[in-house]
């Protein structure tokens, strides 16, 4: 196995900060804005973005956790059938929701996440923020905020490690030989 570092600890922090700035800029402030992280790592990224926005704007955005298992189109092909809780403690109606995920590839996760949120109400708009866009889309969805892009080969895997779950912060490309 060979690995290549896409983002180190510092780079990851800079990227999250940039996304936070872009969100504020694009929405001309933070009014009626909320963050929903897709389990597992999207949740931690969303939380970091929320902290950064709080630093900049002094406002704590409503924050939710989304488990998309029930909405997946490959639910019966999963290695583990574990379903975790979706916890969105605010009313999504008329909100601008920033959906946060770690890696975007096919777009299927995003599709499932959008469906899951739509079943909770009628948000004004949903935007998508991802740390890494690795291309190879299968559905017509695209991120509004992408930390960085990397066009990966089929034998490559983009791995996001976050200290909250993986004890360190980095994004690497792992190539199986």
């Amino acid at each position: 196995m060979r690995t290549k570092v896409l983002l180190d600890k510092k780079g990851l922090e800079r990227t999250v900060n940039r996304i936070a700035h872009e969100i504020i800029e694009r929405n001309q402030g933070v009014e009626a804005l909320s963050l929903i992280g897709i389990r597992t790592r999207g949740v931690h990224l969303a939380y970091r973005i929320r902290e950064k926005i709080k630093d900049i704007e002094g406002i704590e955005l409503p924050f939710g956790v989304l488990d998309i298992t029930m909405y997946r189109d490959d639910v019966f092909k999963l290695k583990s059938p574990e379903v975790k809780k979706t916890e969105i403690p605010f009313d999504v109606n008329n909100m601008t929701i920033i959906l946060v995920d770690d890696v975007m590839q096919t777009g299927r996760t995003t599709r499932a996440a959008i469906d899951a949120i739509m079943d909770l109400g009628r948000p004004k708009r949903i935007q998508l923020a991802v740390l890494i866009d690795r291309g190879d889309r299968e559905l017509p969805v695209h991120p509004d905020y992408a930390g960085s892009s990397y066009t990966a080969n089929p034998e490559e895997e983009v791995v996001v490690r976050l200290r909250e779950v993986d004890k360190k912060d980095e994004v690497v490309v792992v190539r199986s030989q």
Binding site: T69, M70, V75, D115, A116, D119, L120, G121
Partner: peptide
């Protein structure tokens, strides 16, 4: 407990 009491699973 939601308004839309259905998932597509």
């Amino acid at each position: 407990r939601r308004d839309v009491k259905k998932v597509p699973t």
